[in-house]
Design a protein around this nucleic acid. Structure first.
Lengths: 208, 208
DNA sequence: TTTTGCGTTAACAAAATTGTTAGATAAAAT
DNA sequence: ATTTTATCTAACAATTTTGTTAACGCAAAA
């Protein structure tokens, strides 16, 4: 009967840690503050996770897959024709970011502050990206030749996609009070923003 | 004759602090590390600036004007016709960001971690933005009615502009090794990216 | 019932980080 | 030359943050 509470306490710390780390980063997070947030003494945190460092690792592990999936999503569904594939990429990437709105800023900050820590994930990305970029560029060039779309550099286009999809979530809290009613209803804003980004990218590749 | 060195030492600390704060943020920065970077003992840092907090304030003060100017720049030159004005806004904003590539991420992180600290700058922004948004929207609607451009929400368009202009600099170091030769020559990349962003926004508002 | 082991707490210890001070040194002023 | 002032250093002190431990309770197993 204590089994449920036990799981719950360990879990509570993990969830509190994620909140704290996502908002304040590794350096800004305080183990006591995490414990407080979770409603336990800070000795408990050390009991379950030993060190701040190890607790942090758990949070990274828990989110590494999401990070990788999100980036991949931006490349769209490879079975679709390239124009639809790009559109699908913007849309799918946006959805994943919207589901994990704090993750990109957190991850980018950590990787900038301590790049050496993420060599694993990083090297994998490089090799995957190289291949994917090449094949997508090839398809783009072919489609452009057929007059189906503008010829663009896939890397520039993906950079635009990531920018448009991620940045609004980074500035969300900052922008909200400035934007009048635009962001008052979160769900509605997210929906509008997604449409805006798809439209922006589609227009960018439209043959003119 | 020591006069030059004196200025230089105090100055060295300030510059080292800016580097450290910009990369690691307030919490990640270490006063000893700043001192080391500046080539002085950390007692010197306290001698000149008393506390880490006060040193940080100096960095904020030094950059507050740039932050405000950059945001304003995105709204373009008010004397121009709206379509050109928007184009000018993208371009001018990009240039300012490119000149201070670390500033946006730093500032956004700080304002997210400690929003209460920036109420002054923030309230000012809100009141200015409200007026500017309204007048620009008005011009856009008029131009749209004349068939000169697509009707768009100025707030969405500005959000896109900021996203496209700022985010590439946030991911710069992360993206560079992934992007093949695209970012090898920094100056060239910046120039290309600027053109890309202008093109993207111009296509977004083009009447179709 | 005793034992075993996990969960818990409070108090403590260690480490990391920031901040201070007394006095040395050099420069400037009188 | 002497006083005064600013700069600087090394050693130390304070504070903050992280991590440990000893003892206790309690539930389940033996």
């Amino acid at each position: 009967m204590k089994e449920q509470e036990k799981i719950s306490k360990e879990q509570l710390i993990l969830e509190a840690a994620e909140q704290e780390f996502f908002i304040k980063g590794y350096d800004g997070a305080r183990t006591t503050s995490i414990a407080q947030r979770a409603g336990v003494t800070h000795a408990m945190l050390h009991y379950y996770y030993r060190t701040k460092e190890q607790l942090f690792e758990r949070i990274i592990e828990k989110n590494a897959k999401t990070i990788a999936e999100t980036m991949l999503a931006a490349m769209g569904n490879p079975t679709m024709p390239i124009v639809e594939r790009l559109k699908d990429g913007v849309s799918a990437h946006f959805d994943l970011v919207a589901t994990n709105p704090l993750l990109p800023r957190f991850f980018l900050n950590e990787i900038i502050a301590r790049p050496e820590r993420y060599n694993l994930l990083y090297d994998k990305m490089k090799s995957i990206a190289g291949v994917l970029f090449a094949s997508m560029q090839c398809e783009i060039d072919a489609a452009a030749k057929r007059g189906e779309m503008e010829r663009v550099d896939i890397r520039m286009l993906l950079m635009s996609t990531l920018s448009l999809n991620i940045f609004p979530f980074i500035i969300h809290d900052f922008a909200q009070p400035v934007m009048g009613d635009l962001m008052a209803d979160r769900e509605q804003f997210i929906q509008q923003r997604k449409a805006e980004n798809v439209e922006t990218i589609m227009r960018r590749i439209k043959k003119m």
